[in-house]
């Protein structure tokens, strides 16, 4: 069976959930080979969890350059391996850096790029959702090894046992005239809440929340559900919540199992970032709010009555 290369998305040896989604998708195309690009010693921390999601091989591309230059070491590692093993496809998470790595890799290999896929089919075609979910598209690569980036959260990760046989890959030295050097890093300070694009539940507040102080009603419901907190552009522009939590056309695109919209009217700009959520629940005072057109369950009422009651009911159920 042909190998399928999967770029492992990890931070300091902690594997991101999206990597397990890629390993699951890879199994529909062939045999998954995980590619670890990181500082020396990284592979030792991640091999076990990669094996639990079916990685037959783990290619270890470790060097000091791997963490001091942006994107280039990952492109180098994947390009080296793609030429050596002629994989059926290369899968990368469609994160900010993943999109860049996959684009550069496709250009370097002379391959077709299939970006931001929400599904990978056994025949090598992919499903894409464009214009904020308004169109479903099926695409295929017409040339070379398909390079596919997969939107985090769009595939359900399934465990499978893999041999995870390690093999070392030499990384070429990075040319500093062609690569940006990383001189410092400040990770997203997200506290205990899950990251927006990775969360399986998202609770968002909009203009209807009314002030920054009152956003704790949104946060309390989110915490009861183990959810990430999001905000509409209106709420961010009004200064109720920081911009890094904005969901929508100009913010983040989320696709959780459950999306709860509190005091959000549902302008098209917002819907573009959340309408592929599996289940949508909305609370709004205005019975005409467009958010109700896409909500699976809607309550017309004051979010300051409804949300605390829901928080309490969820907490009670958890015991």
């Amino acid at each position: 069976m042909a190998e399928v290369l999967v770029l492992v998305d990890q931070v300091d040896g902690e594997v991101k959930k999206s990597t397990y989604e890629l390993l699951t998708a890879a199994r529909t195309l062939g045999e998954p080979s995980a590619v670890v690009v990181g500082a020396p010693g990284t592979a030792g921390k991640v091999t076990e969890s990669l094996a639990a999601y079916g990685a037959a091989k783990v290619y270890v591309a470790e060097s000091d350059d791997a963490t001091t230059y942006l994107a280039t070491p990952k492109v180098d590692a994947l390009a080296t391996l793609a030429e050596r093993v002629s994989p059926a496809a290369v899968l990368v998470s469609a994160t900010s850096e993943g999109k860049e790595v996959s684009g550069r890799l496709a250009a370097r290999l002379g391959s077709g790029l299939l970006g931001d896929a929400v599904g990978v089919n056994a025949d090598g075609t992919v499903e894409q959702s464009v214009f904020g979910g308004a169109f479903n598209v099926t695409s295929k690569s017409a040339k070379g090894t398909p390079v596919i980036s997969v939107r985090p959260g769009s595939i359900d990760a399934e465990q499978a046992s893999g041999a995870a046989a390690e093999e070392t890959v030499e990384l070429p030295a990075v040319d500093p005239a062609k690569s940006a050097k990383i001189t410092g890093f400040e990770p997203v300070v997200g506290g205990d809440r899950p990251e927006l694009t990775e969360a399986s539940v998202v609770v968002s507040g909009g203009r209807g929340v009314g002030s920054a102080d009152k956003f704790d009603v949104v946060e309390q419901l989110a915490d009861s559900l183990g959810a990430a907190v999001g905000a509409s552009r209106a709420a961010v522009d009004s200064g109720y919540y920081p911009a890094q939590f904005q969901v929508g056309q100009t913010g983040k695109t989320v696709s959780p199992q459950l999306y709860v919209a509190l005091g959000i009217s549902g302008a098209i700009q917002h819907r573009a970032g959340m309408q592929t959520s599996k289940t949508i629940v909305a609370v709004n005072k205005d019975s005409e709010a467009p958010i109700f057109e896409i909500a699976d369950f809607g309550v017309v009422g004051d979010l300051f009555n409804v949300a605390p009651q829901l928080t309490e009911a969820v907490n009670k159920r958890k015991g």
């Binding site: 850096e97 990383i182 001189t183 400040e186 997203v188 890094q244 913010g251 983040k252």
Partner: peptide, 13 residues
């Protein structure tokens, strides 16, 4: 600055 990574300081000639 990206939503999924945080802030990375970059430098090049």
């Amino acid at each position: 600055e990206t939503a999924d990574e945080g802030i990375t300081h970059l430098e090049a000639n």
